[in-house]
Design a protein around this nucleic acid. Structure first.
Length: 469
DNA sequence: ACAGATGATTGAAA
DNA sequence: TTTCAATCATCTGT
């Protein structure tokens, strides 16, 4: 740098002398104390100008502006300009760096791809549509996923927004800075030789600088997305117990569908909705369809493994359902006066119609089997989908279609049970338990122990009379 | 701290 | 694909 300056000085002084002889006087007033017309004095004059140029950066803007204007009008200016041109050509400043091409940065491409895949830098709106759609497709459950991922998507949208604002800001700043520098260079090109190529190069440099900043932004955005993802996955991994109400709802369904505790997709959704509503006090404790599926999966397996352990629970929920059932039965009785009020058949009459079993006879034999030995009406609701029937009777959330679907499968189970009834005598199994469908083959219809509310050891009276709960 | 309960995950099977 | 069965990881009551 110092070397270059020295060379410039040398060259300038040489040319200036030549220029002086050609151009003659006019322009800046001679510096003080140098009235002389000898070469020494002129050299001093030139030296002063050069000094001004060199120190222009040290001055304030206004000062520099004024000085610049003065220099531009200086009689020596054209000479100075041509000299600068010459120097530039010699040093090859204008050519250097012209071939600097920026090859596509693989890391930047990676970042771009990731942001695109995560739906951060993708098309407008539908925040994270790509990722969300992929996730939804992977998990299968549509509505379920929207609940499950709503938090995630909200956060992703936030990141996306920040990313876009920042990107816009950077772009704007880059453009502003570029125009500013271009203007500056254009203005300077009056004083010193600046080729358009150089301006271009300068713009390139600026753009590279800004794109490196952009890359930082992209990188941090990627990091944020990754953190969000891991946190989301962690949250999934972490276990939170369901609320009491939610467990209650699930248990109610389970024990009232003990014969076939496989809720349909619709029923699962319904249950998930119900459970989520009851946990309104908790934040973010919504229960999803897959959670309902998990719950039923766990429940089935654990129930089957140790039915004895669940007896009490079964009785409890049976009693609970019975409260609802008695009301419904009472209502049903009013509808059909044909049967005795104490006969459970009256309550089931409506259900029978829905069942659409092949023959009335099989229905009747089934029902007889179902209720044989049960002296208390509390035992009734526990068998079959009484719960479902009651729900529909009460005008609760279960829709007809769902009931129909359940009834259908229930019908199958029951038909199955009917077929088995003949073999029960040699299987040492009480016919009462047949509707519950647990048989000895390993499936749900294979459970070795009866699943009735009525415990084998306890009489019907063991069903607690505290049905007020 | 401990044991049991419980929601989630995983891989095999149907 | 759903379900089962085993297992993991955490929660909960003691």
């Amino acid at each position: 740098m110092m070397e270059e300056q020295a060379r410039m000085m040398q060259a300038l002084s040489g040319v200036t002398l030549a220029g002086h002889s050609v151009q003659g006087g006019m322009g800046l007033p001679p510096p003080h104390g140098h009235e002389g017309t000898d070469g020494d004095g002129r050299k001093q004059d030139i030296g002063d100008i050069l000094h001004q140029i060199m120190t222009i950066t040290d001055q304030s803007l206004d000062e520099a502006q004024a000085k610049k204007h003065g220099l531009n009008c200086h009689r020596m200016k054209p000479a100075l300009f041509s000299v600068l041109c010459e120097i530039k050509e010699k040093t090859g400043l204008s050519i250097r760096g012209a071939q600097e091409e920026d090859p596509p940065d693989p890391q930047l491409m990676r970042l771009d791809n990731m942001l695109l895949a995560e739906g951060v830098s993708g098309p407008e709106k539908g925040g994270g549509s790509a990722a969300a759609a992929a996730a939804a497709a992977a998990a299968g459950g549509g509505a379920d996923n929207s609940i499950e991922h709503s938090d995630y998507r909200a956060k992703l949208t936030q990141i996306r927004q920040i990313y876009h604002t920042e990107l816009e800001k950077y772009e704007q700043a880059c453009n502003e800075f570029t125009t500013h520098v271009m203007n500056l260079l254009r203005e300077q090109s009056r004083t010193r030789p600046i080729s358009p190529k150089e301006i271009e190069r300068m713009v390139g440099i600026i753009h590279r600088k800004f794109s490196s900043i952009q890359m930082q932004l992209k990188q941090s955005t990627c990091e944020a997305v990754m953190i969000l993802r891991s946190r989301f996955l962690d949250a999934r991994r972490k276990r939170r117990n369901f609320s009491k109400q939610a467990t209650e709802i699930l248990n109610e369904y389970f024990y009232s569908h003990l014969s076939n505790p496989y809720p349909s997709e619709e029923a699962k959704e319904e249950l998930a909705k119900k459970c989520s509503i009851t946990v309104s006090q908790g934040v973010g404790t919504t229960i999803t369809v897959s959670q309902v599926s998990n719950w039923f999966g766990n429940k089935r397996i654990r129930y089957k493994k140790n039915i004895g352990k669940f007896q009490e629970e079964a009785n409890l929920y049976a009693a609970k359902t019975a409260v609802t059932a008695t009301h419904a039965v009472a209502a049903a009785i009013q509808n059909s006066q044909a049967n005795s009020p104490t006969t459970p058949n009256s309550g089931f009459q409506m259900k029978d119609e829905e069942f659409q079993l092949d023959s009335a006879e099989s229905k009747n034999s089934l029902l007889t089997n179902m209720f044989t030995g049960s002296s208390a009406s509390f035992n009734l609701p526990n068998s079959g989908d009484m719960f479902m029937s009651m729900q529909s009777l009460n005008g609760a959330s279960y829709q007809g279609a769902q009931v129909g679907a359940n009834v259908q499968s229930q019908g199958d189970t029951i038909r199955h049970a009917i077929n088995q009834t003949t073999g029960y005598s040699d299987r040492l199994r009480h016919p009462l338990y047949s509707p519950h469908g647990l048989n000895g083959n390993g499936g749900w219809h294979d459970a070795p122990t009866p699943t009735s509310v009525t415990s084998p050891n306890e009489g019907p009276g063991s069903v607690h009379s505290d049905t007020s709960n």
